[in-house]
Design a protein around this nucleic acid. Structure first.
Length: 577
RNA sequence: CGGGGUGUACCUCAGUGGUAGAGGGGAAGCUUUGGGAGCUUCCAGUCGCGGGUUCGAAUCCCGUCACCCCGACCA
């Protein structure tokens, strides 16, 4: 492609509202343009990247025996009533839904479990037809409360979603395992560094799930990893062993003391410098809501630990958990926020405890009275120890559950998520097949997603420098930038044309900067767009000499024009293209 | 949804009540040609929208919409 014949427009200035590099660079390089919050045009160069990612996805899925199809984005409410998800998705305000011209309620699909289940119902009738995995690549719609970071979190985005159907749990597990390999292959081929992690299945439901995280410090997700044991989990899901609390020097009777203004552990540490934070117990009040009711929940937790509300929500099996507001706290404790404790809580408050409180003796806790705390409290002696669960957030330095290693916290961008759904949707939607004995059984399903547009953004987040993007060869919009220093110079025109033709003929994708411009601008644009290879046809064109440089190289090398093609073929074959 | 911020040319922004501005960009020309060169001329705006105050509003007031950030939330 010649630049003079294409829509190639770059900006010198950074967009003011771009917070992350991938967003800023994509806007500057003309890859995307925002149309509304979280809604973008994918320009010609961006679309080439997306199509390459899609192609890798298709090849790997097809190789694994999956079949591509295309489902509608527009979906009727009734379908979502069948699975029971309409209420939850509407309550979460994530669903784009509206009433059409004839009064029918519809939504724009945020995901397609309902449609796929409806589709296979009556088509997959026998165990003999199983297993099957179907997939599509399609635009998804989610009314994110806060779209951000360019393509990282949009309200409309391109996703690959796949669904597997098996006769039993073992079959599902093996479909799932196969898909895990497909995912590893896809992200490896895309040329991004990634970490598969254990994950919380969230609203999709089901038993097991794993996320594929592109390693990036700017990622929205925190990951707990252990270099020794290989453990890797999203912190939403991660579990760990924590250090034992220090023992009190002497057993003292419980007593209440004034702690004016001390609402946080920090305040209390200042007030009681001799009391280690591990012997302070926080009592955090939440408001949990179900479809038909709400409940105030108090969770005890060691002072140096945090509560993971996802684990709490899963334990309570409720729709939402949010921090209790001031009014609720006052009603439950009779005190201002910051003085809640397990002793003398309101009758209707459900008291739970994180496992971090186990073995803590002689601790401090809120007095349920403004400006008062209890000290030297002992479970068993002063109050009964509530049953404990793991509700805590894993922290750097914790020990892995097997005791073999230490946990670090890193960050990543979630580009893929795979789930073992089980029969959640097939049961709800009465989607069954006949087994060996002719009995009707619900399918065991799995579902598997890849954020296609997000993967492109993540690749930039991982590959860029001051000057611009640095694309991995397999998903770069073009393989090589051919820069001609002076358009109109006879020798350069001829050599550039010759190289352009021969490379194209060999299947190398060339972007030829044939503009009548000054060299500086061309170099800047080449760096910004970040094609992996660069060839400069300049002053030595008459001697058939050109400059060769990889985007990641510091210095260019002068080589014969005849060496260009072999070098590129070599680079492409190394990248598996 | 709570808190904060911003809306002025295609882009980045300046402009505290008195004729609408700069830089980038685009067009034309001269000079220049290995890391965003210089000069000249030109193009480009219902100052987000609606109301109000005023002789006069981009500027002050009220409302509204959009976008951005923090938080909550999130396959």
């Amino acid at each position: 492609m010649k630049i003079t014949q294409s829509l190639f427009v770059t900006l010198k200035e950074e967009p003011a509202d771009a917070e992350v590099r991938s967003h800023a660079l994509m806007v500057r390089a003309g890859f995307i343009q925002q149309i509304a919050a979280g809604v973008y045009v994918y320009g010609p160069l961006m679309w080439r990247v997306l199509r390459k990612i899609e192609r890798i996805i298709r090849e790997e899925h097809d190789k694994a025996g999956c079949q591509e199809l295309l489902m509608p984005a527009l979906q009727p409410r009734e379908l979502w009533e069948e699975s029971g998800r309409w209420e939850r998705y509407v309550a979460d305000k994530i669903l784009y839904h509206f009433t059409d011209g004839r009064g029918r309620e519809v939504c724009l699909g945020p995901t397609h479990e309902e449609v796929i289940t409806k589709f296979v119902k009556g088509k997959l009738n026998s165990y003999k037809q199983l297993p099957q995995t179907l997939y599509q690549i399609q635009t998804k719609f989610r009314d994110e409360m806060r779209p951000r970071f360019g393509l990282m979190r949009g309200r409309e985005f391109i996703m690959k979603d796949a669904y597997s159907f098996d006769a039993d749990a073992e079959g599902m597990a093996s479909s799932y395992a196969a898909m895990r390999e497909v995912y590893r292959n896809i992200f490896s081929r895309c040329g991004v560094r990634f970490t598969p992690v254990e994950a919380d299945p969230g609203a999709i439901g089901g038993a097991g799930s794993e996320e594929f995280m592109v390693d990036a410090d700017t990622g929205e997700d925190a990951i707990a990893v252990c270099r020794t044991t290989g453990y890797a989990a999203n912190v939403e899901k991660a579990v760990s062993r924590i250090s034992a609390p220090p023992e009190p020097e002497a057993e003292v009777a419980m007593h209440k003391e004034p702690t004016p203004g001390a609402k946080s552990c920090e305040d209390l540490e200042a007030l009681f410098p001799d009391l280690p934070i591990e012997r302070m117990l926080k009592t955090i009040l939440y408001r949990a809501t179900w479809l038909d009711r709400a409940q105030v929940v108090a969770v005890l937790c060691r002072g140096d630990r945090e509560i993971n509300t996802i684990k709490l929500q899963n334990h309570l099996d409720c729709l939402a958990v949010e921090l209790a507001d001031e009014k609720t706290v006052k009603a439950a404790t009779g005190a201002a926020v910051g003085f809640a404790g397990p002793i003398g809580l309101g009758e209707d408050v459900l008291l739970l405890a994180d496992q971090s409180v186990e073995g803590v003796k002689g601790f401090l806790c809120g007095g349920n009275e403004t400006d008062m705390h209890y000290l030297d409290v002992h479970f068993g002696r002063d109050l009964e120890q509530p049953s404990t669960q793991e509700f805590g957030v894993v922290q750097a330095g914790d020990t892995t559950v097997d005791g073999e290693g230490t946990i670090e916290i890193t960050r990543g961008i979630e580009v893929g998520h795979i789930f073992q759904l089980g029969s959640k949707y097939s049961e709800a939607m009465d989607c069954r097949f006949a087994d060996l004995e002719g009995k009707l059984q619900p399918f065991q399903m799995g579902c598997y997603g890849i954020g296609v547009s997000r993967t492109a953004a993540a690749a930039i987040e991982q590959g860029h420098d001051e000057a611009g993007m640095i694309w991995p060869l397999p998903i770069a919009p073009f393989h090589v930038m051919l820069i001609q220093m002076r358009a109109g110079d006879e020798a350069q025109d001829a050599l550039a044309q010759e190289l352009y033709d021969s490379l194209q003929e060999a299947g190398v994708e060339v972007l030829w900067d044939d503009r009548k411009g000054r060299p500086g601008g061309k170099f800047k644009d080449a760096d910004l767009v970040g094609l992996p290879m660069r060839v400069v046809v300049g002053r030595d064109a008459a001697e058939r000499k050109v400059e060769w440089k990889l985007r990641t190289d510091e210095e260019a090398e002068v080589i014969s024009a005849d060496e260009v093609l072999p070098r590129m073929i070599e680079a492409l074959s190394q990248a598996g293209i």
